[in-house]
Nucleic acid binder design. Structure first.
Length: 458
DNA sequence: GGAACTCGCCAC
DNA sequence: AAACGTGGCGAGTTCC
C-alpha cells in the first residue's frame, strides 16, 4: 500500500478510538489510602518550608508591599517584589514583558531563599496536579484516563481526567511519589513498550537522507557521540568516562534534538555551555566540567582557540552550517522542498493520509508530519495489540499510551509474548501496511514488578 | 461566580 | 530575518 488517503486516515482514527475506549473502560488501579497519606505528608512538608521562607529577608520585603494580600504562590507579586522593589534585573522576560519567575530565572539571581520557594513549587505541583487528581478522578479505586484523537493539531493524541501522559518521570523524587500511586491488577505487572527514537526514524522516512538512514541502520554508529566530538573538538569519545557521557548528553539534548525541532545555534550555545558548566563570558583556565585527563573543558577549548562564550557561539554556528550543509544536506533539501510545497498548495499531507491546513509557521510545517506520523505508528501498533488480546482471549490489558509507548497491565505469563509480538508488528505488519517505512523501527520494553507500582526499584 | 487569560511546569 | 514542536492543568488574575 502506497500513498494513504484521507479515508485511510479516517479508518485509523476510527479503529484507534475503539481501541482507546477499551483501555479507558479498563482503567488503572489507584492506591487511594497511599494518595491521602502522601498528600498529608506533602502538606506538612510544604508548611514547614513556608515557615522557613517566611523567616527570610525576601519575604519581609514582600509583606511590606502586599500586607494582608501577600501570596507566595503569586508569581506576579514575586516579579514585582524582585524586579520592581528590590531592583534585580530579570535575566529574561515572559511573552508579555513581565520579568520571568520560572526556575531558571530565579536560580540566576543567586538568592538563597528562592530555592525554598522552588522546593515549595515542586511539592505543591506533585500534590495538587497529580495526587489530588488521582483522588478526585478515581471511582472505587480506579482511574479511567481518556485518550483523545480529536484535539491535537498534529493528529497526535491527548489525555485528560486525569492526564496519564505527563506523570513525572525526569525528577526522581516527584516520579517516585506520583507513580507509586498507580498499580496493576492483582497478580499482574505493568510493562511499557516504547519505540526507540521514533521521530528521528520517521524524519528519515520523509527526507530519505542517506547519512541519517545510515546512522539508523548501523547499530554501532552513534550520531550524538559524533556531534559531541565535533561540538567539543575531541578526537575520541569514550562513554565509559562520566565526562564523555555528559558531553554526549549535551550534544543530544542541547544541539541535535533542538536543531531537528527548528532551533538555531544561538540558543544551542547557551544550553551547551550550561551543560558543561561554563559561563557566557570569557573563560579562564580550570573552569567547567573536568575531563578524564584531569584538565577542565575551558583549558581544552582555549587550546583550540576558543577563549570564551563569544568564540563558542561562532564555533556552534560553524557546526550548524556543517550539520545542514554537509552532514544532513539531503534532510535540509527535503525541508526546503516540503515548506515550498506547503506554501504552494496551502496544505500538507502526511504519509498516513492526514491533512494539515491553515496558517502554519515554518517550524510547524516541518514538525507536524513527523510528529503526527510517528504517533500513527504507535497507534497502529496499539490497535493490532488490542485486536490480538481480544482474539487470543489474553488476560493482559492495554491501559494507556504516551505518544511513543504503550502501557500494559500484563499477566506475567504473557509478558514475553508482548515483547515478541510488538517486534513482529514493527518488523512485518507496519512495513507491509506502509511502504514509506524505509528504516528499521526498534522498541524497548520496561518491566515493573508483579503487584508493584508504576515505578521501579525497592 | 464563571470565562478567558497569563505563567509555570509536567510529559513526549 | 528569525529562531524549539505538541499537549493538560493548577493557581492567580482580570473582566463581565
Amino acid at each position: 500500500m502506497g500513498v494513504q488517503t484521507l479515508a485511510d486516515a479516517y479508518r485509523l482514527i476510527h479503529a484507534g478510538i475503539l481501541a482507546f475506549s477499551r483501555a479507558e473502560r479498563q482503567g488503572i488501579r489507584v492506591d487511594v489510602p497511599y494518595c491521602r497519606r502522601a498528600r498529608r505528608r506533602l502538606s506538612k512538608q510544604i508548611e514547614r518550608l513556608e515557615g522557613e521562607f517566611q523567616a527570610s529577608d525576601l519575604y519581609r520585603r514582600w509583606e511590606q508591599v502586599y500586607r494582608g494580600k501577600t501570596n507566595i504562590s503569586s508569581n506576579q507579586q514575586l516579579a514585582r517584589v524582585l524586579y520592581g522593589v528590590m531592583g534585580f534585573v530579570p535575566s529574561k522576560t515572559t511573552k508579555t514583558g513581565q520579568g520571568a519567575t520560572d526556575e531558571e530565572a530565579l536560580l540566576r539571581l543567586g538568592v538563597d531563599e528562592l530555592s525554598i520557594l522552588l522546593q515549595i513549587r515542586k511539592l505543591t505541583k506533585v500534590r495538587d496536579t497529580y495526587l489530588e487528581a488521582f483522588i478526585r478522578e478515581q471511582h472505587g479505586g480506579w482511574i479511567h484516563p481518556f485518550f483523545n484523537l480529536h484535539t491535537v493539531r498534529t493528529y497526535r493524541s491527548s489525555s485528560d481526567s486525569p492526564n496519564l501522559q505527563n506523570v513525572p518521570k525526569r525528577d526522581a523524587e516527584a516520579m517516585e511519589i506520583c507513580r507509586r500511586a498507580l498499580l496493576p491488577r492483582p497478580g499482574h505487572q505493568f510493562i511499557e513498550i516504547d519505540f526507540a527514537a521514533l521521530e528521528v526514524h520517521i524524519a528519515a522516512c520523509y527526507c530519505k537522507d542517506p547519512t541519517l538512514i545510515a546512522y539508523l541502520e548501523d547499530p554501532r554508529s552513534d550520531m550524538h557521540a559524533d556531534m559531541a566530538k565535533q561540538l567539543f573538538m575531541l578526537d575520541t569519545l569514550d562513554r565509559a568516562f562520566p565526562a564523555h557521557h555528559t558531553l554526549r548528553q549535551a550534544a543530544k539534548n542541547g544541539f541535535v534534538f533542538p536543531q531537528f525541532y527548528g532551533d538555531y545555534y544561538g540558543n544551542n550555545a547557551v544550553t551547551l555551555a550550561e551543560w558543561v558548566k561554563l559561563s557566557t563570558n570569557r573563560w579562564r583556565g580550570g573552569q567547567g566540567i573536568e575531563l578524564p585527563d584531569g584538565t577542565h573543558i575551558s583549558d581544552h577549548f582555549r587550546a583550540h582557540g576558543i577563549k570564551g562564550f563569544q568564540d563558542f557561539v561562532e564555533h556552534v554556528r560553524q557546526v550548524e552550517d556543517d550539520f545542514w550543509g554537509n552532514r544532513f544536506r539531503t534532510y535540509r533539501e527535503w525541508r526546503e522542498r516540503w515548506v515550498a510545497q506547503y506554501r504552494r498548495a496551502g496544505y500538507l499531507r502526511m504519509f498516513t493520509g492526514f491533512i494539515c491546513s491553515g496558517e502554519l509557521a515554518r517550524n510547524e510545517i516541518i514538525n507536524y508530519p513527523i510528529q503526527g506520523t510517528a504517533f500513527h505508528c504507535l497507534l497502529q501498533t496499539f490497535i493490532l495489540l488490542d485486536d490480538a488480546i481480544q482474539h487470543l482471549d489474553l488476560q493482559s490489558r492495554l491501559v494507556g499510551q504516551i505518544h511513543d509507548s504503550v502501557l500494559i497491565d500484563a499477566h506475567p505469563s504473557e509478558v514475553s509474548w508482548f515483547e515478541q509480538e510488538v517486534k513482529r508488528i514493527i518488523r512485518e505488519d507496519l512495513p507491509a501496511k506502509w511502504d514509506w517505512i524505509v528504516v528499521p523501527l526498534e522498541v524497548d520494553m520496561d518491566e515493573y514488578a508483579v503487584d508493584g507500582p508504576w515505578v521501579k526499584g525497592e
